[in-house]
C-alpha cells in the first residue's frame, strides 16, 4: 500500500557542536599527555562520531575502524619514515656529497612511490570499515595499476609545469571511484581533465580579480563538479548524484563561521565543523529509483590501516 517512493534521497548530518567539542577536548588532552601516541584513537573516535551522525535515507553510517588498527598502521609508517630520514641524516653526516645527492634522490623517489601505495591502502581500509544498514563498502582497485597511472601522470604534470595536474586529478578520481563498490552498487566518475582545467582556470582568475570573493563560488563549482560527476548504478538502474550547494550559501556560511572563530579565538571550531558538515551533507542528493533494501554484502574485510595513516601523515588531499 506504499506510495511511490520519492525520486530524491538526501544525505544529512546530525552531529552536535557540544558533543564534538567534548570529543576534541578529550582527544587533544590525551594526545598531549601521551606525546602524540593517542592520535590514532583520537582519529577513530572522531570518525566514529561523524559516521554515526551522518544519515542517508533514514539510516546512519557506521565506522568500524578502531584506534588499535590505526595505531598499528601508525607505528609501521613512523618506522618507514624514520628509516628514510635516518638514511638521509646518515648520508649528510658522512660528508660525502655524491652519496648525499643519491640518497636524497632515493628519498624523494620512495616518497613519491609511497603516495599511490598509501592511497590504495587508505581506500581499501576506509571503504571496508564503512557500512550502512550493515552493508560494507569496498574498493577493488589494483595497487600496481594505480601506481603506474599515478607515476605516469605525476611525471606528465611535472614536465608540463602543473598544467596536466587537472587531468592527473581527474584520472585519479576516475580510477578510484570506478573501483568503489557498495553492495551491488557500482560507481563511475565522469569528469574530464579539460573541463576540470577550465573550471580551475576560471575559478582562480575570477578569485584574483574579485580579491578572493569569487573563491566561495569557485569552491562550490569544484564541489558540484565532483559530486555531479559521480554516477552510481544499482542492478543496471542509474542513480545520478546531484549537488544543490550554492556559492552564495557557502559564502554566508563561511562569513558566520569566520566570525564565530574569531570571536571565540578558535574555540568554536567544533560547532563550525558541525555547521560545515551539515551544509555539505544536506546538499548531496541521490536521484533515481534507489532500493535501500536490496543491497547485498559483496565485499571482503580489510583491516590494515597503514595506508590510511600514511595518507593522513603526508596530509594528502588528492581526491
Amino acid at each position: 500500500m506504499e506510495n511511490e517512493q520519492p525520486q530524491f534521497r538526501q544525505f544529512s548530518y546530525h552531529g552536535d557542536g557540544t558533543e564534538l567539542f567534548k570529543i576534541y577536548i578529550v582527544n587533544w588532552l590525551l594526545t598531549i599527555v601521551t606525546f602524540g601516541l593517542y592520535y590514532p584513537w583520537a582519529k577513530a573516535s572522531l570518525l566514529k562520531y561523524n559516521y554515526q551522525h551522518t544519515k542517508f535515507d533514514g539510516s546512519n553510517f557506521t565506522f568500524h575502524g578502531t584506534g588499535k588498527e590505526m595505531f598499528k598502521g601508525f607505528i609501521k609508517i613512523i618506522g618507514v619514515i624514520g628509516v628514510l630520514y635516518g638514511a638521509l641524516i646518515a648520508a649528510q653526516l658522512s660528508g660525502n656529497t655524491t652519496l648525499t645527492i643519491v640518497v636524497l634522490l632515493g628519498f624523494y623517489v620512495i616518497l613519491l612511490l609511497l603516495v599511490p601505495i598509501a592511497l590504495h591502502g587508505s581506500m581499501r581500509y576506509r571503504t571496508s570499515r564503512s557500512s550502512w544498514r550493515g552493508i560494507h563498502f569496498g574498493y577493488r582497485g589494483d595497487r600496481s595499476e594505480l601506481t603506474k597511472q599515478f607515476l605516469t601522470d605525476a611525471f606528465l604534470t611535472i614536465i608540463t609545469f602543473g598544467i596536466y595536474g587537472a587531468w592527473f586529478i581527474n584520472n585519479l578520481r576516475t580510477y578510484i571511484i570506478g573501483n568503489i563498490r557498495f553492495g551491488n552498487i557500482t560507481f563511475q566518475y565522469t569528469g574530464n581533465g579539460g573541463d576540470f582545467f577550465w573550471l580551475n582556470f576560471k575559478g582562480r582568475l575570477l578569485s584574483v580579480l574579485t580579491l578572493g570573493i569569487y573563491f566561495f563560488w569557485y569552491s562550490m563549482d569544484l564541489f558540484d563538479y565532483f559530486i555531479e560527476n559521480i554516477y552510481a548504478e544499482q542492478n543496471g538502474k542509474p542513480l545520478p548524484i546531484r549537488s544543490t550547494a550554492k556559492g552564495s550559501d557557502f559564502f554566508l556560511l563561511s562569513i558566520v563561521n569566520g566570525l564565530m572563530l574569531s570571536f571565540t579565538l578558535g574555540l568554536a571550531f567544533p560547532w563550525v565543523q558541525a555547521r560545515v558538515f551539515r551544509f555539505f551533507m544536506s546538499n548531496i542528493w541521490v536521484q533515481g529509483d534507489f532500493d535501500g533494501n536490496s543491497l547485498v554484502q559483496t565485499e571482503a574485510e580489510y583491516r590494515d590501516a597503514s595506508g590510511d595513516d600514511m595518507v593522513d601523515m603526508l596530509d594528502l588531499n588528492l581526491i
Partner: peptide
C-alpha cells in the same frame, strides 16, 4: 605538541 591537532586560529 599542543597545536598539532588544533585549528588554524588557535
Amino acid at each position: 605538541l599542543i597545536t598539532n591537532d588544533l585549528n588554524g586560529i588557535t
